[in-house]
Design a protein around this nucleic acid. Structure first.
Length: 974
RNA sequence: GCCUCUGUGGUGGAAUUGGUAGACACGCAGGACUUAAAAUCCUGUGACCUUAACAGUCGUGCGGGUUCAAGUCCCGCCGGAGGUACCA
């Protein structure tokens, strides 16, 4: 009987679906195991072979844990809101819901072919109103919450309002906007509705605030920091500007310290944790205030180097700093205004591109040095960022690289206050290291930098010039998107009214959240997916879309990360109509035990999901502090592009009118180029062309070659299939292929990202069709360690498919009930041990190797014993589920193999009487010697030294030292 | 610049705690079966030198070090990948 994978795989996929084999149980006595793949966005291009890599690994874990007696939750769904579908809708007018539906269908078909053990009953889609109802619900909870620094927790807004009513805000220690004024209980009570709303807005976790945002004109929307790479949008690569806008935002900064601390207990890769740490960017320092001469204003700066305070030679403000216009003198006004306007209008990209260019302008104003009282000039420079710290720095050019550049550019003094610990040229460079002794610094003189920092902070605090402070680079996350295809933000606006109920002219609008029972706020229909003529988001086009027919809804939608920030919770209870997740189910499933996905989500999704989890935890809805305990980043599978090389005769050849389609095999071309055409291959080529076309080719300079991408699906092991090639490129007529000695056309190879335009996309469907899903699964694992990026190439796939055939052959002639031999048991139990170790450390590539070794050995032993072959099937079934199910049923079983107990490792089968010792002399292995393990070390030494081979290496000398490690090695030092 | 990871045959990779470097697979070479091909099976395969056979020398990016013993640990350098960057 032949191994017919097509039939087998279809049969078992249907069986699993019909029997709901992988349905997870919410009430089980078994221990739980939650294994999750990062939410895929269903793109129009479908899956390529890189996508399933992580899914296969997680599926192996899921199936393995089922064998191990766990109740496994292994769900899948779609992050189905997003830009590409909307861009497509703009181009075609087709509703994104329709294209999304089609794409999901295609994804599902592709996923089904690979034989994953997902519990599809729990599927979720972020664009489904039944799902986004709860995303909106969570938004409302965050809108109605604030961060209490005293309890270090998110709390409901009622506790804050109650406190305001009692004592005003003077005892409140909250994470809030900087500009909140202090008020008493009486004042609070006297505030109008609008005033109260404005005050509360400064405290809410989800808040409407004015901030500099990343505005992307081409996409017509704002973007979060992690959606901007190198000054352009991550999706589409469009330029991004900084723009002051009123935007819905999330106060993630409140969680900065907890997000940082939480990392220590997570089982994530060090690099991923480092990326998050850098992104959060904690730095400790102090604020320090500088009074402006002849003025009541003062400039507060943030510095991590208060020790260098006596080295301050100027103060720099960000162009956006609010004091710039206040303090600029009349003489400098024109120059400053000019500079500020220019700086503000520069795009992010220009700003980054010109990092090395120093620019700035003097304001004409001076501050007093807080300790010496000396006047210090105030400058404006765009190397100071408005959004970080206070938007102002004290510049210490002798000890800070950036200040140094600025100072040397404008000829400002460079007072030195630290004695470097090694030779240093202050004319060339700043001494930025936190090492050395303080000089020229009054009370800090003689101190080491670290001690000086401490002392300086003490002194600053004592004189009430500032306060020790910790800053974070992390910014609040912009939450509104001026786009159509996203969750509507469940907010409407009421015009402000006075306390007597009359409309306040010009009082603005007050945002209100919808009632929970009014959710979901369904995405309305629009005539076009574009902004309105006055630049309002697409939702403003929706006709008659008003709250209670009267009040305007918020027109921006939520960002892509909203739905994915809590989906791991929804899978636990995906059908719940009353809650986003029930407390009991959240308690049972707790968090994700294994999360697999790409490292590109390090600063986006993985930070946001941790943030939402902490907030929901604080509010008491769940009892989970971190979403995923263990996380693995699977590597990227790159494309492996193939090329053909066309000889270009147009320019350099004296005979101009010759046929164009001459293709040279890569190996021959390499020889020709390397020898500069002084080789037999080139002579042959010239002859061949002459023979075929009647032309003598001559090149004056270099040989001209055009490299052409060729569809990798018509190339096998880098050998071009000529017939398919000509079929693919019908326009090529009368071609000449210049082959190598094997009469083959060898293609060139380059590793690039997998993409349609490079003709290097390989679909898993093709592999499934040609080799079967089990081979695809094994091969993707066999390719190398999961975390490593590697190019896709099918060169070794025959080895894996051969292995499955060999496995099949072990079973198809029937099994015997005889007692297995010692050798057979040894092979089996060796494999059980290895595979268990491999899985526990996620080393799936080595487990495939170990299966091969096992099957090779059993084939050599001609093993057909049920007692060996049955456990082996269970071992392999997580990796190659279809073939093992089939063989399992051929062995007479009526139930699926999926829940069979994992075979137990019995150590005694591996016990050996002898060990083959490698005998080394001076660390060099010379020969092996098989010795009984019962021997004492002294006996081993005696036998080894007396061995005839040893005599040769001893050359009659006495050994200096003999090292014997039992069951490992013998090393003799001569 | 900084941070993280990484460097092993012709190729993908293995070597889990310092203990026989190159498992397993591809490729290649030779052989069996076949009219032939495919499929399958067997043998060999790090480099060098040499042989009838044995044996020998070198070898995990480069240079040092620790150790009886280093792909593995330490120091310095070089290359590759990813992240991040006027964050005061």
């Amino acid at each position: 009987m032949e191994y017919n994978f097509t039939e087998i795989e279809k049969k078992w996929q249907a069986y699993w679906a019909a029997n709901k084999t992988f349905k997870a149980d919410d009430n089980s006595a078994k221990p739980k195991y939650y294994v999750l793949d990062m939410f895929p966005y269903p793109s129009g291009a479908g899956l390529h072979v890189g996508h399933p890599l992580g899914y296969i690994a997680s599926d192996i874990m899921a199936r393995y844990k089922r064998h191990k007696g766990f109740n496994v939750l292994h769900p899948m769904g779609y992050d189905s809101f997003g830009l590409p579908a909307e861009q497509y809708a703009i181009q075609t007018g087709q509703h994104p819901a329709i294209t999304t539906e089609q794409n999901i269908k295609r994804y599902r078909e592709q996923l089904d072919k690979i034989g994953f053990s997902f519990d599809w009953d729990r599927e979720v889609r972020t664009s489904d109103p039944n799902y986004y109802k709860w995303t909106q619900w969570i938004f409302i909870q965050l809108f109605n919450s604030w961060y209490n620094k005293q309890s270090n927790k998110t709390e409901k807004l009622e506790t804050l309002i109650a406190a305001f009513e009692k004592n005003g805000n003077k005892n409140i220690d909250a994470v809030c906007d900087d500009n909140v004024k202090t008020f008493s209980a009486e004042e609070w009570k006297s505030f109008s509705e609008k005033e109260k709303s404005d005050v509360l807005m400064a405290y809410r976790i989800a808040y409407l605030g004015e901030a500099y945002v990343n505005w992307c004109p081409a996409l017509g929307t704002v973007l979060a920091n992690d959606e901007v790479k190198d000054g352009v949008s991550e999706r589409g690569g469009h330029p991004v500007e900084r723009k002051l806008m009123k935007q819905w935002s999330m106060r993630i900064t409140a969680y900065a310290q907890r997000l940082l601390d939480g990392l220590d207990n997570l089982d994530w890769t060090e690099s991923l944790k480092e990326t998050q740490r850098n992104w959060i960017g904690r730095s400790e320092g102090t604020s320090l205030s500088f009074n402006i001469q002849h003025s009541t204003f003062n400039i507060s700066v943030f510095t991590t180097r208060p020790d260098t305070v006596f080295g301050v030679s100027f103060v720099t403000l960000a162009p956006e700093h609010e004091l710039v216009s206040e303090i600029t003198t009349a003489e400098q006004k024109a120059a400053v205004e000019d500079y500020v306007t220019k700086a503000k209008n520069r795009s992010e990209r220009e700003r980054q591109a010109e990092v090395d260019k120093v620019s700035g302008v003097f304001t004409g104003a001076f501050v007093e040095h807080p300790f010496t009282g000396k006047p210090i000039p105030v400058w404006v420079g765009d190397y100071v960022l408005a959004g970080y710290g206070t938007g102002a720095v004290m510049a210490v050019p002798a000890h800070d690289e950036r200040d140094f550049k600025f100072a040397t550019h404008f000829g400002l003094p460079l007072p030195q206050v630290i004695e470097p610990t090694r030779e240093h040229d202050f004319k060339k460079d700043a001494w930025g290291e936190k090492e050395g002794k303080l000089i020229n610094s009054d009370f800090l003189n003689g101190l080491e930098v670290k001690a000086a920092i401490k002392k300086a902070i003490e002194e600053i605090e004592k004189r009430e010039l500032g306060k020790g402070k910790t800053n974070y680079r992390l910014r609040d996350a912009v939450f509104g998107r001026q786009r159509f295809w996203g969750e509507p933000i469940p907010i409407y606006y009421k015009p402000a009214r006075r306390s007597d109920g009359t409309l306040e002219e010009g009082g603005g609008d007050i945002p209100y959240a919808l009632n929970e029972n009014e959710l979901p706020l369904v995405l309305p229909e629009v005539d076009k997916y574009l902004p309105t003529e006055d630049g309002e988001p697409p939702l403003a086009r929706a006709a008659n879309w008003k709250y209670k027919g009267e009040f305007t809804y918020e027109h921006s939608t939520m960002p892509g990360w909203a739905g994915s920030s809590w989906y791991f919770l929804r899978y636990m209870d995906s059908k719940n109509n009353n809650e986003f997740v029930s407390k009991e189910k959240a308690k049972y499933w707790n968090n994700v035990d294994l999360y697999i996905g790409g490292s590109e989500h390090a600063t986006g999704h993985l930070l946001y999901v941790r943030f939402w989890t902490k907030a929901l935890n604080d509010l008491g809805y769940i009892n989970i502090e971190e979403p995923a305990q263990k996380l693995i980043n699977q590597g990227m599978i790159q494309g492996r592009s193939n090329f053909v090389y066309r000889l270009d005769l147009n320019q350099n050849n004296i005979n101009l009118i010759v046929p164009k389609n001459i293709f040279i095999s890569k190996d021959i071309l390499d020889v020709i180029v390397k020898t500069d055409r002084k080789c037999k291959e080139y002579e042959d080529l010239v002859k061949e062309i002459k023979k075929r076309f009647g032309y003598e080719i001559v090149f004056e300079n270099e040989i001209n070659i055009t490299k052409i991408n060729v569809d990798v699906n018509i190339v096998e092991n880098d050998i071009l299939n000529i017939e398919k090639f000509l079929n693919w490129r019908k326009e090529i007529t009368n071609p000449l292929f210049f082959y190598n000695k094997q009469n083959e056309y060898v293609c060139g190879v380059e590793v690039e990202k997998m993409s349609k335009s490079k003709w290097n996309v390989v679909s898993p469907d093709d592999i499934c069709e040609k080799f079967g899903a089990d081979t695809l699964r094994l091969y993707e694992m066999f390719l190398g360690p999961l975390e490593l990026s590697k190019p896709w190439n099918t060169n070794g796939i025959t080895g894996v498919s051969g292995f499955l055939k060999k496995l099949w052959r072990l079973y198809v002639n029937g099994v015997s009930e005889e007692t297995p031999t010692k050798a057979e048991l040894k092979t089996l139990h060796k494999t059980i041990k290895k595979i268990a170790e491999d899985i526990e450390r996620f080393s799936f590539n080595t487990s495939v190797s170990n299966f091969m070794i096992c099957v090779n050995e059993l084939s050599d032993l001609k093993c057909n014993k049920r007692a060996i072959l049955e456990p082996l099937l269970v071992l392999i079934s997580p990796y190659a589920p279809h073939i093992t199910e089939e063989l399992w049923s051929l062995l007479g079983h009526k139930q699926s193999i999926a829940f069979e107990n994992y075979p137990e490792f019995i150590a005694e089968h591996l016990v050996e009487d002898n060990f083959s010792y490698p005998i080394s002399f001076n660390g060099k292995m010379r020969f092996n010697l098989e010795l009984p393990l019962t021997l004492q070390v002294s006996e081993i030494e005696k036998i080894v030294l007396e061995h005839e081979q040893s005599q040769k290496y001893l050359e009659g000398k006495q050994p200096k030292k003999v090292i014997i490690v039992p069951k490992k090695i013998v090393n003799i030092v001569v």
